[in-house]
Computed example of a mutant assay.
Amino acid sequence: MLTIGCHLSSAKGYLNMAKMAVSIDASTFQFFTRNPRGGRAKEINPKDVAAYHEYASEHGVAVVLAHAPYTLNPASDKQQTRDFALMVLAEDLGRMEETPHQMYNMHPGSATGQAPEVAIEKIAAALNEVLLPAQTTTVLLETMSGKGSEIGGTFEQLAALIERVDLDSHLGVCLDTCHVWDAGYDIAGDLDGVLDAFDCIVGLDRLRAIHLNDSKNTRGSHKDRHARIGEGEIGFEALAAVTNHPRLRELPFYLETPNDKLEGYAEEIARLRAARKQ
């Protein structure tokens, strides 16, 4: 079974997101924990969470993925920015325990004028401060396009970061197809080679989720501009092959494609389900 979903608005709560997902034949979903540009998180309603658990169980909604705000940068050389990142991470991970055994995705951060090695140390220090032994949430470090001073544009940077985290059993990786393509990894022409490299450097056991996006850019452009499935440079066949690959097919896939309405995601999900090999 293909576990696939898309990014949904969390404004109306968990139950509403689950119902929206089911309405487009999705079996999972992703959401921002708060405004993607930062700010205060909406208070969790226990009744909504209880209703969500019941509905999700009845309708086969699989493990879901929360996404940290884009403004999160624990690698910053500005203490105020780092303090904000620590506050959000600690608060979000605490809130995630209202829906145990889920996943929380974050962009690792940007070096902003520092050496990458220094930035990696700062990100690891932040994770060492907020990760707790008893937490059930798995924090996913997202593969990035290598735009500007982003950390995570290479598998080696992710591996170096994970190595510095004490509670690394709480860490995984979310592979974004647009990002790795823009970073230079040829997932269309040599998917096996890319996965072999990831396995050798990071370990495929760390891969817990995939952001399934086409790219408006040529490979290696380092620009990060998502396209709808089959409307970009990666192409439908290559992305369908990602969902069918024996080393990836059991992972959950999340669409972050530029759709203004749910119907657009529904169309993409239907095409990808139709391309699913038994």
Results as ranks from 00 to 15, higher is better:
Thr177Phe: 07
Ser221Cys: 05
Arg37Glu: 07
Cys174Gln: 09
Cys174Pro: 03
Ala18Lys: 08
Lys223Gln: 07
Thr71Trp: 10
Cys174Asp: 03
Arg208Gln: 15
Ala68Phe: 06
Pro69His: 07
Ala50Gln: 14
Ser23Val: 00
Gly113Gln: 08
Tyr104Trp: 13
Ser110Leu: 00
Glu163Cys: 00
Ser9Ile: 02
Thr71His: 14
Asp205Ser: 13
Gly184Phe: 12
Thr28Trp: 09
Val49Thr: 14
Asp199Ser: 04
Val63Gly: 02
His211Val: 00
Leu158Trp: 06
Leu127Gln: 04
Gly148Asp: 12
Thr3Met: 07
Ile162Asn: 04
Gln135Glu: 13
Asp192Pro: 06
Leu212Cys: 07
Gly60His: 08
Val194Ala: 04
Ile151Gln: 14
Pro252Ala: 04
Gln79Glu: 15
Thr218Ser: 08
Lys19Ser: 03
Asn35Met: 06
Lys261Asn: 10
Cys200Phe: 11
Asp166Lys: 15
Leu248Gly: 07
Ile4Gln: 08
Asp192Gln: 12
His59Phe: 08
Glu98Met: 07
Gly109Pro: 12
Glu233Val: 01
Asp190Arg: 07
Val61Ile: 15
Asp166Gly: 00
Pro100Gln: 11
Asp176Ala: 05
Glu150Cys: 11
Leu251Asn: 09
Thr218Gly: 11
Lys122Cys: 01
Val194Gln: 12
Phe32Pro: 05
Tyr52Gly: 04
Ser27Asp: 09
Ala240Thr: 07
Lys78Ala: 06
Asn128Ile: 00
Thr177Ile: 01
Thr81Lys: 11
Ala266Ile: 03
Ile120Gly: 02
Gly152Trp: 13
Arg247Tyr: 07
Glu233Asn: 11
Glu231Asn: 08
Thr71Tyr: 15
Ser221Arg: 04
Leu127Ser: 01
Val165His: 13
Gln278Val: 03
Leu272Asn: 12
Asn217Arg: 09
Met20Phe: 00
Met106Ala: 02
Asp83Ala: 14
Ser76Thr: 05
Pro116Cys: 06
Asp168Cys: 01
